[in-house]
Design a protein around this nucleic acid. Sequence first.
DNA 1: TTCACGATTCTA
DNA 2: AGAATCGTGAAG
Length: 189
Amino acid sequence: MVAPDLIGCLLVKRQAKQKKLWGVIVETEAYSQSEPACHGYNKRTPKNETLFGPPGNFYVYLTYGMYYCVNIVTHKSNWANGVLIRSIALPNEDERIASGPGLLAKRFGFSRDFDNQPISSKNKFWIVERMPAIKMQTIISTTRVGISKAKDLSWRWYLQSSRSVSKRAKGDRCPPLSTAWKPSLKEYS
DNA sequence: TTCACGATTCTA
DNA sequence: AGAATCGTGAAG
Protein backbone atom coordinates (compact mmCIF):
# COMPACT_ATOMS: atom_id res chain seq x y z
CA MET A 1 0.00 0.00 0.00
CA VAL A 2 1.35 3.30 -1.06
CA ALA A 3 -0.48 5.57 1.39
CA PRO A 4 1.00 4.19 4.64
CA ASP A 5 4.39 3.80 2.96
CA LEU A 6 4.42 7.52 2.24
CA ILE A 7 4.32 8.32 5.95
CA GLY A 8 7.80 9.50 6.90
CA CYS A 9 8.81 10.28 3.33
CA LEU A 10 9.97 13.77 2.46
CA LEU A 11 8.27 16.16 0.09
CA VAL A 12 10.89 18.46 -1.39
CA LYS A 13 10.41 21.62 -3.44
CA ARG A 14 13.15 23.27 -5.41
CA GLN A 15 13.13 26.99 -4.85
CA ALA A 16 15.10 29.91 -6.17
CA LYS A 17 18.79 30.26 -5.36
CA GLN A 18 19.44 26.50 -4.93
CA LYS A 19 17.25 26.53 -1.86
CA LYS A 20 14.98 23.64 -1.02
CA LEU A 21 11.79 23.54 0.97
CA TRP A 22 11.14 20.20 2.60
CA GLY A 23 8.97 18.49 5.16
CA VAL A 24 8.03 15.03 6.37
CA ILE A 25 4.70 13.54 5.33
CA VAL A 26 2.84 12.57 8.51
CA GLU A 27 -0.75 11.97 7.31
CA THR A 28 -2.19 10.41 4.13
CA GLU A 29 -5.42 8.99 2.76
CA ALA A 30 -6.05 6.50 -0.04
CA TYR A 31 -8.82 6.76 -2.64
CA SER A 32 -9.83 4.16 -5.20
CA GLN A 33 -12.26 4.00 -8.09
CA SER A 34 -13.84 0.97 -6.41
CA GLU A 35 -15.23 3.12 -3.61
CA PRO A 36 -17.75 6.04 -3.75
CA ALA A 37 -15.69 8.67 -1.92
CA CYS A 38 -13.21 8.67 -4.82
CA HIS A 39 -13.43 11.45 -7.41
CA GLY A 40 -13.14 8.81 -10.12
CA TYR A 41 -15.93 6.61 -8.80
CA ASN A 42 -18.76 7.72 -11.07
CA LYS A 43 -17.27 8.60 -14.40
CA ARG A 44 -14.20 9.86 -16.11
CA THR A 45 -14.53 13.62 -16.67
CA PRO A 46 -12.14 16.48 -17.47
CA LYS A 47 -12.11 17.31 -13.76
CA ASN A 48 -10.85 13.92 -12.58
CA GLU A 49 -8.95 12.93 -15.71
CA THR A 50 -5.59 13.21 -13.95
CA LEU A 51 -6.60 10.50 -11.50
CA PHE A 52 -6.94 8.11 -14.44
CA GLY A 53 -3.54 9.08 -15.79
CA PRO A 54 -0.13 7.52 -15.18
CA PRO A 55 0.96 6.91 -11.57
CA GLY A 56 3.61 9.21 -10.16
CA ASN A 57 1.90 12.41 -11.20
CA PHE A 58 0.29 14.98 -8.95
CA TYR A 59 -3.48 15.34 -8.92
CA VAL A 60 -4.26 18.83 -7.64
CA TYR A 61 -7.79 20.20 -7.33
CA LEU A 62 -9.58 23.13 -5.77
CA THR A 63 -11.87 22.26 -2.90
CA TYR A 64 -14.56 24.40 -1.25
CA GLY A 65 -13.65 27.14 -3.66
CA MET A 66 -10.61 28.21 -1.69
CA TYR A 67 -8.12 25.47 -0.89
CA TYR A 68 -6.10 23.12 -3.03
CA CYS A 69 -5.64 19.45 -2.24
CA VAL A 70 -2.59 17.51 -3.37
CA ASN A 71 -2.68 13.85 -4.36
CA ILE A 72 -0.20 11.41 -5.77
CA VAL A 73 -1.66 9.28 -8.55
CA THR A 74 -0.95 5.60 -7.90
CA HIS A 75 -1.47 2.06 -9.18
CA LYS A 76 -2.02 2.18 -12.95
CA SER A 77 -3.34 4.21 -15.85
CA ASN A 78 -7.05 4.07 -16.65
CA TRP A 79 -7.87 3.21 -13.06
CA ALA A 80 -8.58 6.03 -10.61
CA ASN A 81 -6.26 5.62 -7.63
CA GLY A 82 -4.65 8.31 -5.54
CA VAL A 83 -3.15 9.22 -2.21
CA LEU A 84 -4.16 12.51 -0.62
CA ILE A 85 -1.29 14.13 1.25
CA ARG A 86 -3.01 15.52 4.33
CA SER A 87 -0.29 16.81 6.63
CA ILE A 88 3.40 17.59 6.54
CA ALA A 89 5.74 18.52 9.39
CA LEU A 90 8.33 21.17 8.55
CA PRO A 91 11.57 21.64 10.49
CA ASN A 92 11.76 24.85 12.51
CA GLU A 93 8.24 25.90 11.67
CA ASP A 94 4.93 25.94 13.50
CA GLU A 95 3.67 22.36 13.76
CA ARG A 96 0.33 23.38 12.24
CA ILE A 97 1.71 25.32 9.28
CA ALA A 98 0.97 22.41 6.91
CA SER A 99 -1.49 20.45 9.05
CA GLY A 100 -4.43 19.57 6.80
CA PRO A 101 -4.58 19.30 3.00
CA GLY A 102 -5.51 22.94 2.37
CA LEU A 103 -2.81 24.37 4.61
CA LEU A 104 -0.22 21.98 3.22
CA ALA A 105 -0.94 23.04 -0.35
CA LYS A 106 -0.80 26.67 0.71
CA ARG A 107 2.56 26.32 2.49
CA PHE A 108 4.15 24.53 -0.46
CA GLY A 109 2.64 26.84 -3.05
CA PHE A 110 0.59 24.28 -4.93
CA SER A 111 -1.95 25.36 -7.52
CA ARG A 112 -3.71 23.83 -10.51
CA ASP A 113 -0.50 24.50 -12.44
CA PHE A 114 0.98 21.41 -10.85
CA ASP A 115 -1.94 19.16 -11.70
CA ASN A 116 -0.87 16.20 -13.85
CA GLN A 117 2.83 17.06 -13.42
CA PRO A 118 5.27 14.19 -12.85
CA ILE A 119 6.81 14.02 -9.40
CA SER A 120 10.53 14.06 -10.14
CA SER A 121 13.76 15.68 -9.04
CA LYS A 122 13.91 16.97 -12.62
CA ASN A 123 10.90 19.08 -11.73
CA LYS A 124 9.95 21.39 -8.90
CA PHE A 125 8.66 18.72 -6.52
CA TRP A 126 9.87 15.28 -5.63
CA ILE A 127 9.64 12.65 -2.90
CA VAL A 128 12.52 11.24 -0.86
CA GLU A 129 12.43 7.77 0.69
CA ARG A 130 11.36 7.46 4.27
CA MET A 131 14.06 7.65 6.88
CA PRO A 132 14.78 4.39 8.78
CA ALA A 133 14.07 6.03 12.14
CA ILE A 134 10.45 6.51 11.18
CA LYS A 135 9.98 2.77 10.75
CA MET A 136 10.30 2.30 14.49
CA GLN A 137 7.40 4.68 15.12
CA THR A 138 3.72 3.84 15.43
CA ILE A 139 1.53 4.51 12.41
CA ILE A 140 -2.19 4.74 13.11
CA SER A 141 -4.76 3.50 10.61
CA THR A 142 -8.20 5.06 10.86
CA THR A 143 -11.16 6.42 8.90
CA ARG A 144 -10.92 9.24 6.37
CA VAL A 145 -11.87 12.84 7.06
CA GLY A 146 -14.43 15.11 5.43
CA ILE A 147 -16.24 12.57 3.27
CA SER A 148 -19.89 11.52 3.25
CA LYS A 149 -19.58 8.15 1.54
CA ALA A 150 -17.56 5.05 2.41
CA LYS A 151 -16.96 6.49 5.86
CA ASP A 152 -16.26 3.05 7.29
CA LEU A 153 -13.04 2.40 5.36
CA SER A 154 -9.86 2.80 7.41
CA TRP A 155 -7.86 4.32 4.61
CA ARG A 156 -6.20 7.12 6.53
CA TRP A 157 -2.77 6.77 8.11
CA TYR A 158 -0.76 9.05 10.33
CA LEU A 159 2.35 9.18 12.45
CA GLN A 160 1.10 8.96 16.00
CA SER A 161 4.05 10.78 17.55
CA SER A 162 3.60 13.87 15.36
CA ARG A 163 1.76 16.97 16.53
CA SER A 164 1.16 18.03 12.91
CA VAL A 165 -1.65 15.52 12.32
CA SER A 166 -4.82 17.40 11.36
CA LYS A 167 -7.36 15.18 13.08
CA ARG A 168 -6.64 12.35 15.47
CA ALA A 169 -8.46 9.06 15.78
CA LYS A 170 -10.90 8.65 18.66
CA GLY A 171 -9.03 8.06 21.87
CA ASP A 172 -5.64 9.10 20.49
CA ARG A 173 -4.25 12.05 22.40
CA CYS A 174 -1.90 14.55 20.81
CA PRO A 175 1.55 13.80 22.27
CA PRO A 176 2.98 16.46 24.58
CA LEU A 177 5.78 18.67 23.25
CA SER A 178 8.34 16.91 25.41
CA THR A 179 7.87 13.49 23.81
CA ALA A 180 6.57 14.44 20.36
CA TRP A 181 8.52 13.59 17.22
CA LYS A 182 9.96 16.49 15.23
CA PRO A 183 11.57 16.66 11.80
CA SER A 184 15.22 17.61 11.95
CA LEU A 185 17.96 18.48 9.48
CA LYS A 186 19.74 15.13 9.75
CA GLU A 187 16.73 13.51 8.12
CA TYR A 188 17.58 15.13 4.84
CA SER A 189 21.13 14.45 3.71
C1' DT B 1 -28.93 29.12 -17.23
C1' DT B 2 -29.63 27.86 -12.52
C1' DC B 3 -28.39 25.26 -8.50
C1' DA B 4 -26.40 22.33 -5.01
C1' DC B 5 -22.29 20.61 -3.38
C1' DG B 6 -17.82 19.50 -1.71
C1' DA B 7 -11.14 14.75 0.06
C1' DT B 8 -11.41 22.67 4.14
C1' DT B 9 -10.44 26.04 7.53
C1' DC B 10 -11.41 29.73 10.68
C1' DT B 11 -14.45 32.14 13.79
C1' DA B 12 -18.27 32.57 17.15
C1' DA C 1 -22.78 25.73 14.30
C1' DG C 2 -21.81 28.86 10.20
C1' DA C 3 -19.44 31.50 6.96
C1' DA C 4 -16.24 32.11 3.19
C1' DT C 5 -15.93 31.02 -1.82
C1' DC C 6 -16.06 28.88 -6.72
C1' DG C 7 -15.56 25.20 -10.40
C1' DT C 8 -18.14 21.40 -11.82
C1' DG C 9 -21.93 18.47 -13.20
C1' DA C 10 -26.70 17.57 -13.11
C1' DA C 11 -31.16 19.40 -13.78
C1' DG C 12 -34.63 22.41 -15.89
